[in-house]
Structures are given as C-alpha cells and as structure tokens.
C-alpha cells in the first residue's frame, strides 16, 4: 500500500515539474521520470507487460523523439528556450483552473457517493492470467483474437503517421503566404 503512495507522489511531483519548469529540456526529462513512475503504478496493478512497454515505447522511443527535436531546434531564450511563467491571467488560465476544480469535484463525488464497490480492494486477476498461462501470452491472445481488427487499423494509422511526418518534414513544402524562407529543394 505504501508503495502506491510513494509512486503516486513521484508521478504527481514529476507532472508538476513538467508543467512548472521553464526550460523544455528539463520538462522532457521530468516527463521521462513521470512515465517511469507510471510504469511502477502499472506494476502495482499487475500489468507487468504494460509496464515494460511503457518504459520501452513511451520513456524510450517517444521521449527520445522529444529530446531529439529539442536538440534539433537548439532553442535560445528569445525563441522559446526559456519561458517566463509570470504573465497576467487570461481567459485560458481561468478556464483551466475552473476545469481542474470541476474534475476534482467530480472525483470527490465519485469517491464519496459513488458505487461502494469502487472503494473495495482491487479484484484479483490472478485466476484469469493463470488459465491463460502467463501475462504476455494472455495479452497476445486477446490482441490477436478479439482485437485483431483494431490492431490492424492501428498499424495502418502508424503507417499514415510515418508518411505524414515525412511529408511534413520536406523542406520545399509550401503551405501559405507565411513563408519567409527560400523554397529550394533539399536532396
């Protein structure tokens, strides 16, 4: 039980650091920290395979992409490298605080007056995994059986994303009149 609170504390502290730190590279590193702590949360929920995937795909691949782009842009202070957090409050800030308060209120109502089964301990999924013979095997059987069509659709989505990323990264792509660079081809 204490390990959940420790991990939850780490997750919330890391998330706050992502939002509050002015330098984007610090935010990216704190986001890696938060995702690692979330993998620990998955472990306490008995989702070992997802925890490993979280570390490899999220904290590994996706965050490396973030850090790589931050390095590629080589931001200086004037162009978004450092950002002052002390600005006057606008409509977005008021909306944000209202949204967070509404979310907290709903969660409080759920915990206080919701279904009592939510406050009981978590259902042991051990028998479900025991009959399937291992966690990753159970997930694989479900992924390639019941969820085969969504799986294939996800692969098509990833293909479209790859093509889109390549097409957007081409330098000679002219979108609008906001273009102020030369439009020469890049080999």
């Amino acid at each position: 039980m204490w390990i959940f609170f420790l991990l939850a504390l780490l997750v919330v502290a890391g998330a706050l650091a992502v939002v509050l730190l002015p330098n984007p590279i610090h935010s990216a590193l704190m986001l890696v920290f938060t995702l690692m702590a979330t993998a620990g949360i998955f472990l306490t929920l008995g989702a070992q395979f997802l925890a490993v995937i979280q570390v490899i795909v999220y904290a590994g691949a996706i965050m490396v992409l973030f850090v790589f782009v931050i390095m590629l842009l080589n931001l200086r202070a004037g162009e978004g490298g450092e950002e002052s957090l002390h600005r006057k409050t606008g409509l977005g800030q008021i909306l944000g605080i209202g949204l967070a308060a509404l979310l907290m209120l709903q969660i409080g109502l759920l915990v206080l007056t919701g279904k009592p089964s939510l406050l009981k301990s978590i259902h042991p999924a051990a028998e479900l995994e025991a009959q399937a013979g291992g966690h990753s095997q159970a997930i694989g059987l479900l992924l390639y059986g019941k969820y085969l069509l969504p799986f294939e659709v996800a692969s098509v989505l990833l293909l479209v994303a790859i093509i889109g990323a390549v097409a957007l990264s081409r330098r000679h792509l002219v979108i609008g009149p906001g273009r102020d660079e030369s439009t020469e081809e890049v080999p």
């Binding site: 959940f4 949204l99 969660i107 939510l118 978590i122």
Partner: peptide, 24 residues
C-alpha cells in the same frame, strides 16, 4: 493489493488536471 480502485482514479484525475492546466 490493498489499494482501492478509486484512489487510482483520483491519481489519474490529478494527473489529467495537471496536464490540462499545462496545456492552458
């Protein structure tokens, strides 16, 4: 497994709220 599922939902809501605040 002694932690109720509601506490995990509270953690998820707090994390979502922090993210939403960050976006705004």
């Amino acid at each position: 497994m002694l932690v109720p599922v509601a506490w995990y939902q509270v953690l998820a809501a707090v994390l979502f709220a922090i993210g939403a605040m960050g976006v705004l």
